[in-house]
């Protein structure tokens, strides 16, 4: 039986009203404002869409749970860009991150000493939402983005980065190599970067053998300091500068340390770390 005209019209009217579009998503549910974020907070941004979004108002997560970034610094947008009443384009805001998120507090935040080189962490900024900007919030959150250990999972951390360099967990942000590929020391690797690298004394290029001998001597001292004892069962691998690099005033020797048998390992050789 056909619908009466009125019923049909009512149905169509309802459709018209609904056609203007609405959704069940509430963007304000459970959020934490940008201004309420604190240094040391860890942030779960597990999807590329969340990581690459300019603002983040998701509640922080405990740092021993999977997360992607950790806040090491909070600052504010200043100058002409901050004067805009409406939030400027994300491209302009991101450009300012390079200037405003200072790299200098990173090493102290990580607890890095002279023999600790951090690797695989990147600066990642988050700016206020449009609504927050309109309300006058100019907070710029400077985070550290963790390294990618498993390609299919993307960048991910399960430990706090604050003071990590004095703990064995720091393997996750130390530089190692598996064959020619750079990896973090929390992944299987055959050699580990020894910090600090060695700079040979200036002067004329002394020849391949002398450079190798000098590099070996200096790296051995650094490596012994790095592991905090004799290099038993360990082997140095050196990358000294050749004449070309030397001519460009690059006299740096990269010192790498691995097991004598060459077997891949997981973890760091750095000595004196808390377990």
């Amino acid at each position: 039986m056909p619908f009466p005209h009125r019923v049909r019209s009512a149905f169509l009217c309802a459709a018209l009203v609904a056609a203007t579009g609405c959704s069940g998503h509430d963007p304000h549910a459970g959020i934490v404002s940008s201004a309420a974020m604190e240094i040391g907070d860890c942030h779960r941004l597990e999807l590329p869409e969340e990581l690459y979004n300019g603002s983040d108002v998701a509640p922080p997560v405990p740092c021993n749970e999977p997360h992607q970034t950790e806040t090491y610094m909070l600052t504010r947008y200043s100058g002409p860009i901050a004067a805009h009443r409406e939030r400027p384009s994300p491209e302009q805001l991101v450009k300012e991150i390079d200037r405003l998120c200072d790299y200098r507090p990173i090493r102290p935040y990580l607890g890095a000493g002279p023999m600790d080189g951090q690797w695989g962490v990147a600066i990642w900024g988050k700016f206020p939402t449009r609504a927050e900007w309109l309300r006058g919030d100019r907070t710029l959150r400077c985070d550290l983005l963790g390294p990618t250990l498993v390609a299919a999972r993307g960048p991910e951390l399960t430990v706090p980065l604050r003071g990590i360099m004095v703990r064995a967990e720091s393997a996750v942000v130390r530089r190692c190599r598996l064959g020619p590929a750079d990896v973090t020391c929390a992944q299987p690797h055959d050699v580990e970067w020894v910090e600090p690298p060695v700079d040979l004394p200036p002067g004329r290029y002394p020849g391949v053998r002398r450079v190798a001998r000098l590099a070996e001597e200096m790296c051995r001292v650094n490596a012994a300091n790095f592991v905090g004892g004799p290099l038993r069962g360990l082997r140095l691998r050196l990358e000294p500068p050749g004449p070309d690099r030397w001519r460009r005033d690059d006299r740096r020797v990269e010192c790498w340390l691995g097991r004598e048998d060459g077997a891949p390992v997981v973890g760091t050789l750095r000595g004196g770390l808390a377990r």
Binding site: A18, S23, A29, L47, A58
Partner: peptide
């Protein structure tokens, strides 16, 4: 299932809500 916070759900770059009858 996933919980999207703030501007993570919406137009890329601004988070403004994207309306479409395709949602139905």
């Amino acid at each position: 299932p996933h919980t999207w916070y703030g501007e993570t759900c919406g137009a890329d770059g601004s988070g403004e809500t994207y309306h479409s009858t395709q949602v139905w």
